[in-house]
Each structure stands twice: as structure tokens, then as C-alpha cells.
Amino acid sequence: MEAKRVDDSLFRPLSPEKRGHDPIQRPSMSVWKETILNVLKNKMAVLGFTLLLVIGFFAIAGPHMVPFDPAKQDLVNTNVAPNSEHWFGSDDLGRDVWSRTWYGARVSLTIGLIAAAIDIILGVTIGGISGYMAGRSKFGDRIDSILMRIVEILYGIPYLLIVILLMVIMEPGITSIIIALSVTGWVGMARIIRGQILQLKSQEYVLAAQKMGTSHPKIIWRHLIPNTAGIIIVNLTFTIPSAIFAESFLSFLGLGVQAPFASWGTMANDSLGVILSGQWWRLFFPGFMIALTMFAFNAFGDGLQDALDPKANK
């Protein structure tokens, strides 16, 4: 077959309207803009976020909406069922459950959110480093081994002893509760993230990043950790309630929110004896608020995860 000559006569200039770039498939936008749009499209995420805003609003304004002080006793109107005056009823000392619930929201949400944030920062950092270093070199094995032994030691020492030790050193209050919860709270998270990183680091994109000379910290933060986002969100959604309940236990021990002040955990704990006698509102309202907050976080977290996951893009 005769070879075809390629000369200039075979080429023609583009018509003027076709010049320029090929049309881009969709308008380009920044990552954040795209994320926000994706979240807004996700109904559950919007619902969760709205609920969180509403809960936040009531935590700030709720106690001021009724003429009752959350700590004020009223021994004439004890154990009143919910009515037009006491919207959520009153407890055995006549304190208004509505104002206590929203006052408690401030305490519980502060503790839950900060403790969970510290757990996640520490857990993800330690777990990420540990999982990434394991199996790399003799040195890497040693780092992993040391970090995991620290996890075991913190897990092994009785939590109560550490709490009592903190009570000896520190003043009771929200700060000491958060420290007590954070000292050991991160270890479970660290083990889970380490397991995830161990599994993820054999993926091709990690090898590609390594071969292109990306630094180890950058591989951990930019490539591995974002791929554990789902697990981190799930972890967050049960770290917050467990911190809220742990706070009620610490308050019971004297390290924490002292009576007459309230938190969701202490309200639930105090009402344990009375659910059998029918005063359901004392357990129901703080318990329902915890569940509602968790639902809101879960819905928002799941939506955020879908929105952030490029693999799930349509």
C-alpha cells in the first residue's frame, strides 16, 4: 500500500466561531463552592444542619423564654406534668424542666463537642502516623509499636483512677471534665484510624504519590486521612453522646457540673429513680434532646460525607 503524503493542503483553518477551547462539560467552581452546593442538594444534610441551628438557638435563648431560673426551687409546684406554664413540667424540687433542659444543652454540647474534637485531632494524628509508619522500615515499626503501647497503657490504667487523680490536681468544672474525657478518649479512635490507614496505604494512589516525591506527612493528611472521613464522622457521632453521658458520671463523682446546675447527662441520671413512678417528662426531654442532637449530627455528617466523596459524584 502506498504511503500517503501528509502535506499542508490537507489542513484547513477552523471557522472563526469554532476557535478557542472545547466547551468545558460543566462550569468550573472551587472545591468549597461545589461542596456547599452538594450539601444543599442533600435533603438529609440540610435537615440535620437546620436542626443543629434550632438546637443551638434554643440553647442560647431557651432559658430566657420562660420566667423560671434553671436552678430555682419551687417546693409548692413539684413534679408538675407538662402544662401551659411549665412547658416540659417540673422536677422533684419544682425546678422548671424546660429551662433546665436548655441550660443543660449549653453544658452538654460544649463538653460533647470539645471533647469529641480533641479525641478526633489526637486519635487521627496518632492513628494516622502509627498506621502509616508500620511496616515501612525497622524505624517505622518501632514508632508504630511505641504509639500502640502508649494506647494500650492508657487503656489499661483504670479510667476512674485517672479521674480521681485529676480531681486531686484540678478544680472541678467544665475544663477538668474535658481534660478527664480527653486523656483516654482518643485511644479507641487512634486504633480504628490506624486499622484504616493500614488497609488504605497499599492503594495505588498512595504508591503514585510516593513515587512522585510527596512528603510522608502530606500523604497522610492529603491522601489517607480524607479517605477515612466516613469512619471519622461515624466516630464523631458516638463520641459526642458518650462524652455527654460520661460527664453525668463525673458530675456524680463530684468532678463536674454541681447541683443545682444542670446538664443533659445529670438530668437523665437524676431521673432514673422516677421513671418507674411515672414522671416520664424528667427523663424524656433531656433524653429526647440527646437523641435529636445525635440524629442531626448523623444526618448532617452523612450528607457531608456524600458531598465530599468525589467517587460518589454523579
Binding site: A134, G135, R136, D141, M148, E152, G156, L198, Q199, S202
Partner: peptide, 27 residues
């Protein structure tokens, strides 16, 4: 408690390899 904890976490570490053979725990 610690004896059980340390043993269990060791077994968990070993089991990772059987669940996902790509996992390498030591160099």
C-alpha cells in the same frame, strides 16, 4: 484487664493480615 487487653489487641493485629492480605504490619 491488661493481660486480656494486650492479648486481644495482639490477636486483632494478627487478624488484620488474614482479613486483608495487603496489610503489612512489620517491615
Amino acid at each position: 484487664f491488661s493481660v486480656l487487653l494486650v492479648l486481644t489487641l495482639f490477636i486483632i493485629d494478627i487478624s488484620y493480615r488474614y482479613i486483608d492480605p495487603r496489610i503489612k504490619l512489620t517491615s
